[in-house]
Each structure stands twice: as C-alpha cells, then as structure tokens.
Amino acid sequence: MRGVGAVLRGAPRAATGLAVLGAALLVAPLLVDDYLLSVILITLYFAFVGQAWNLMMGYAGQLSLGHALYVGLGGYAAAAFFVHFGLTPWAGMVIGILVAAAFAAGIGLLAFRFGIGGVYFALLTIAVAEFTRILFEHFEWVGATGGFFLPVENREINDLLMLRGSPAMFYYVILAMTVGLFLANVALIRSRMGYYWMAIREDQDAAQALGINTFRYKMMAVVLSASLTALGGVFLAFYNNNLFPIDAFGIHRSIEIILAPIIGGLGTLFGPILGAFILTPLGEVLTWALDQLGVQMAGVKHLFYGLVLLVIIRSLPGGVWPWFARRLGIEGPEARP
C-alpha cells in the first residue's frame, strides 16, 4: 500500500485541498466565534474517536458497539485523579488508558479465547459498557448518578498542564490529537501489523492458515483502539467539565462514535475525518435551523443521523470517502471501499 504522500502527489487537487483545510483549521480560533469554534472542536473530537474505532472495526474487522465504555473510563479516571488528588490530566490519562486497556483486554480475552465472534462479540461490547454504566451509577467516589464535576476556573488563563483554560486552548489540543492520530494511523496501516489486521478482516480463517497469530493481533487492535478512545475521553471530560454515567457510557454515545467512520468510509484513513466533518456540522445546522423556526424536539439530531446513515448505506455503501477520492483523482488503496 502506498503512503498518503504518494497518493497526494498523484492528485494535486486533493493536496491543495488538504493544505487549505489545514491552514484554515490552524487559524480558525482567530476567525470564528466561540459557538462555531465549539462546533469544529466537537467535529475534531468525533474525527479522533472515529479514527480510534476505525482501527478496530475498519482495519481489523472487529465490531465494537460499546466504545463509549472507553470514553467514559478514560474521562472518569483522569477527572477523578484530578479532582481528588490534583493530578495533572497528562498523568491521569495514563491511568485512564491503563483502565480502558484492561477492560478491552478482558473483553478480547473472553471473546477470542472462547470463539465469540461477529454479532456476539458486538453484543458483548454493549453488555460490558452497560454493566459499567450501572456500576458507575453506584460509584460514590465519582458522584454516582448525581454526576462528577470538574472545578471551572478562570477560562482566560490557559493552564495546559492542568488542561484548564479557554476554548481556543482545547481546540488546539484536540486538533493536535486528531492530526497526530491520523499520522500514527498512516504508519500503523503500512506496518506489518496493519497488513495482518486487514488479512484478519478479509478472511480470518485464511489469515490463521497462513500462520498469522490472529489472537495476538486481534487483541492488539482491541487494546490499541480502546486506549486511544480513552484518550479522547480524557479530553472530552476536561472540556465538558462534567461526567454523568448515562452520558459517558450510554449506548447512544457508542453509536455516535461509529457514525462518522461508517458514513465516511470504513477501513480508510480519511473516512472517519470526512464523516465527522459531514455529520457534526449538519447536525448543528439542523438544530440551529429548527431553533430559528421555534421547533424544539428532543432527539431530532439522532433521527437526522439515522436518516443520513440510511441514505449513505443505500447510495454509497463503501462510505463517502472512496467515492470522493475517485472524484479527486486518487487511485489505489485509499480509494478502495
């Protein structure tokens, strides 16, 4: 598989587009108001966790419908150690990642050792997420159902060490995270492990017959994806300043995570990012438009997401990115659905 660099050299329009987008994202906090910035910020967040989920589903072919579990665990762990012990989230995230990785390893061990695959694996991920939600609803140390709150301090002072500060600071943090994960994915997908994942996704029996240690590489995919998602969870907790079990671990959160990669294109590098940039702003525009009309309907955004998903699956089953890539003149693996 060629690198993204080579792909882009073959498609000058795409390279130009990417450069313009990059520059726009870099200066965005200077140009747009706080509301618009928050929309881009949440878009980037979904691009980040979408990429993390895509590693596991898009590349290694293991469907998780409970990824909110890792968002919640990462967020709760870092927030709890910050509030109770004053620990910087940069250290707290290590704890969050370890906790999430341990849960993921438990799920993987259970599933892959006992041959739980496909739909049953997906159900297991939901079950563990739900179980953890109920656990946290009774976990007094982090506020139980009443929620867990981070102290909101002066938002004018940017304290990067404690991750307290202005929306612009949070914006640059998530921008760096999303771009960083993208670059890491480029390397990962071209690595030996990336190829093993794709072999497992395409035909697990064949991968095993060729001597790929399918157990080890599926475990790697699950643990890596969970760890990265937990990192996203730390960010979200410190940005939102509050955590509720239902909002952290709920199934609707898990579904939100997987929409962007599915709509953008499973198993593609750009898919989750493109999907997030399509879905999140559209959802915001819809909410705003309905507000202007004086309509206030709970859940209308999710209804809309469902409709978008339906339309995409009907018309572009491989996702928007493979179609878009061909239009940009990008050939090869990145344009493959």
Binding site: Y195, M198, A206
Partner: peptide, 20 residues
C-alpha cells in the same frame, strides 16, 4: 480464501508472514 481487497502481490506477501 484469498484476500479479495488486497492485490495479487499483497496476497502473496501475506503468505510469507511466518519467519520460515
């Protein structure tokens, strides 16, 4: 049991993943 979305060469290379 070939890998349908991989190229012919990639399929062959996947056959050589064992140290042997």
């Amino acid at each position: 049991q070939i890998f349908p979305n991989m190229t012919v060469r990639e399929n062959l290379e996947m056959g050589a993943v064992i140290p042997r």
